[in-house]
Design a protein around this nucleic acid. Structure first.
Lengths: 208, 208
DNA sequence: TAGATTGTTAATCGATTAACAATC
DNA sequence: TAGATTGTTAATCGATTAACAATC
């Protein structure tokens, strides 16, 4: 019924699949094809589309070009989306240079770190002192932030981001950020993901 | 009823909260406290525990020390868990050095890359040619693999991992790996997460 | 037309929450 | 005892799937 996170993640998968189909010269695509690509039922694909008013042809499926355009529009792919990263450690530095972001129009505008020795104003992506983050976010009207700082610093950094105008946060620190008002927080819990994987692998081993 | 991924992620969160409580000198903890920490209802905390046969006291909650021990046991924290990484690019290299893994007993045993110039047999974590991955996994009986290779190489690397004995895969490539048999795949879709964040931030902006 | 696909509604499934008896 | 918390069952909620009429 309503748009939820999974729905947008699916749109992103449809988009990836459509790009590949287009490259192969496909003109039309059926909900069944996209369902396979995303690993869901075809009725869900059609439902996703109906939420956004995307319609196909009763017989001939959907036109690839048209679909790409509409999905890109929904996902904001027609604009470059600027984000800032807090923390120039392993994860933060990796995301700063991550080709997957750039390819998708996700531009890391600046990285901030509390360690002054990491400052590098002239790199392709500037690394700046954390003290300057608030002003930077305000001046550049950034709305998306990525938190890659250690556990203990995360909620402090989060508060600064929120007070600077950030509206959405991708959080890699394994702490739950108490989210007031209309701020959206997505958590990427890498340790948790691995722990879960390990649990199920060990559990299935025991069953045998 | 049955153990699912969310349940294990919650156990991981309980574990983190319990470590902090213990450091503060707490002896007892109530399901309500852990519910707050994990952002769920207290009845779910009690249900999670009941699945694993963890019982408390009708009046006095749970003993912190006892709980830590039991949760650690469930999550396999009493053993060092070895993993391999395929791909020594930005993400792979970051995870190789990621302190969050080491702290939790997750040991990156080796990293593999197709680029011979990245080979480094003598580092704290060896970086080896991708051709040697299969033998390495077999010889060291590794069961968990992390895929950080580009999109197009992902399914090939996945097949090698599976044929070498890997049972669980954490996949950072934005492609769906067709998982046969009893192999568990967890996807970390960084671009998708950001796209979803951007969508909802933009959507809430429009509402105003 | 016959066959196939969309768009939408109803059914299902699973996870979380609420409620409450048991009991310390 | 009275009050509070556990352990468990029933209710709720939300997302996905199945089914099917409409129709090209």
């Amino acid at each position: 019924m309503t748009v939820n996170k999974n729905c947008i993640i699916r749109l992103s998968k449809y988009k990836n699949a459509l790009a590949k189909l287009k490259a192969l010269g496909f003109v039309k695509v059926f909900s069944d094809n996209l369902a396979d690509a995303a690993g869901v039922a075809s009725s869900l694909v059609r439902k996703d589309f109906s939420i956004f008013g995307i319609t196909g042809n009763k017989k001939g499926g959907y036109l690839v070009d048209e679909l790409i355009e509409k999905v890109n529009d929904i996902l904001g792919k027609n604009d470059i989306q600027k984000v800032v990263i807090a923390g120039a450690g392993n994860i933060g530095s990796a995301l700063m240079k991550y080709a997957g972001f750039e390819k998708e129009g996700l531009k890391v505008s600046a990285v901030f770190d509390s360690d002054p020795s990491k400052t590098d104003k002239n790199g392709p992506v500037p690394i700046l002192p954390i003290d300057s983050m608030k002003d930077y976010i305000k001046q550049n009207k950034i709305r998306i932030g990525i938190i890659c700082v250690p556990d203990v610093s995360a909620s402090g950094v989060f508060d600064i981001m929120v007070s600077s105008g950030i509206k959405g946060v991708l959080n890699f620190a394994p702490v739950s950020l108490k989210t007031q008002e209309d701020i959206i927080v997505e958590n990427v819990n890498l340790v948790g993901e691995l722990e879960s994987l390990i649990y199920f692998v060990n559990a299935s081993k025991k069953m045998k």
